[in-house]
Nucleic acid binder design. Sequence first.
RNA 1: GCGCCUGUAGCUCAGCUGGACAGAGCAACGGACUUCUAAUCCGUAGGCCGCAGGUUCGAGUCCUGCCAGGCGUACCA
Length: 554
Amino acid sequence: MKDTLKALILSAAQKAHDAGALPNNGFPEVILETPKVQAHGDFSTNFALISASIQKLSPKRIAQAVVDHLDNTQQWIEKVEVAGPGFINFHLHPSAWHRVLEAVLTQGRRYGALNLGKGTRIQVEYVSSNPTGPLHVGHGRGAAVGDSVANILAFCGYDVQREYYVNDSGRQIETLGRSVYLRLKALSGSKDPFPPECYQGEYIRHLAREILDAKETLPAMAPEEAGVAFCARYAAKKITEGMRKDLERFGVIFDRWYSEQSLYDAGKVERTLSELTDKGVVYEKDGAWWFRTSAYGDEKDRVVIRKDGQPTYFASDIAYHRDKYERGFETVIDVWGADHHGYIPRMEAAVEAMGWSKARFKVILVQLVNLLRGGVPVAMSTRAGEFVTLGEVLDEVGKDAARFLFLARHHESPLDFDLELAKTQSNENPVYYVQYVHARISSILKKGQERGITEAAYSEEAASRLTAPEEVQLLKALSGYPEVIHMCAVHMEPHRIPFYLMDLAAFFHAYYNKHRVLSDDPVLTHARICLVLAVKEVIRNGLSLLGVSAPEKM
RNA sequence: GCGCCUGUAGCUCAGCUGGACAGAGCAACGGACUUCUAAUCCGUAGGCCGCAGGUUCGAGUCCUGCCAGGCGUACCA
């Protein structure tokens, strides 16, 4: 619809030029927007305003010239006017919107899908929390954002892989092993002190008890080094399993869990570093090995191998990202907590130094979550091991509410997540507002079936009966869905979907309260069934991209 | 100190990458269920878009400088 209108405007401008009304035939791209104010029509363009400098005419005269040469033989434009400083406003005939219904009903769950990706392989890596403790709400937000972005990209024609990077190596894992080991010893009567740098959480004690109960005490109580290593392996595995379960409950399923340790085992870290040394971007200084990231825009060089010979996290991360590109991903997207933003320049540097354009590396930063209960902040201290886990949030508020709320905000905005609000099943909670539309429509359709109305295929005749303002408004909203998806995909911003859905839901509820779908008029009933069926489809479609269910009844 | 993010109605947030008089939802107030689900709808009220300059026909949006909050600035991850 937009495209036809654009073409119409361009050809009008061309005709105006041929007729001598416009001196110059250099025309800018036509930008159409949907005005906020209804009085400004269904679409408006600033075409005349941006043309003013080229045409050396006042915008109003240009606009008038275009309007005079507009070809409206199809009659679907009801009214065109020049307004304000030179906007051209188009008021469309209600019938112009009817075809949207046909599009939704025939394309079904593919409605809004765009082939932006054309099969391009793209990887989204998200959550990737260290297996040193359970997932908390912040991880939940990252999971929701990453998962939804992956959904949207897949919907738009990309070949998407979802990956979780398991940091099962290095210092933190050692600390984890030590923490469990010490708790285990304490259970057998040891009075060794528990150092503050160890993980304080209650789950560490649980793990220790588990080992004890499983009668695996023997290997665990082996000489310290071996005992710690055993505990580390055991705990990391258990914690990772727990994360996987929480994420599954949250509706997040990864295609692959990629182990950091496996990079070392396969010699990939070593190989990458030696190749980079050969290239001259890794050098030795002060007993440590440094990556020359400053040559690629980072503010300083970064250590990859510490003085003590241990590789840093950065070292394996370089090898990991190299591996991603070698696996054939055209674009790699990392979803990180905003507290890692300082890490971006060095990772970009690494990607570039290895020979890939940094345009192929994208980071989505997700801001932190402030957890509240009834407006009061909930104390969260990782160090003291006091925090509300994702699992607990899911127990309390459920998957749908949590996901919707996480996604109903721009990911770069800090988020206040109120547990009380999230679980209230009232109009304060937008999830149910949207889901309710789906349930209501399902109920109507069921009722319709009981009355023997089963056929709901699009027909021109029926659609032409949809002339009420509320109906036209719904049709307009439906026609805007593909563009919302487009914006989401291009900007990797899922939050546009919840906002769109709330608008669509509002239009539907208003419509529902004013008009009856099932009436004595069979043609009108058919038309309205088609309409609500289309609304239902789009609601379901949008919710599924968020990972939120669309219930048949509530 | 430097870097990144944020600042819009009492609260929580949108604002389509520069467009028309700034939009929702909650909360407040007043109305609507003998009807396909009232988890709904209709109406009222609410604003120096953090502050000050600049660019532009036109700025919440772009530039500069301040102010406030958050985060980062490791041979931690």
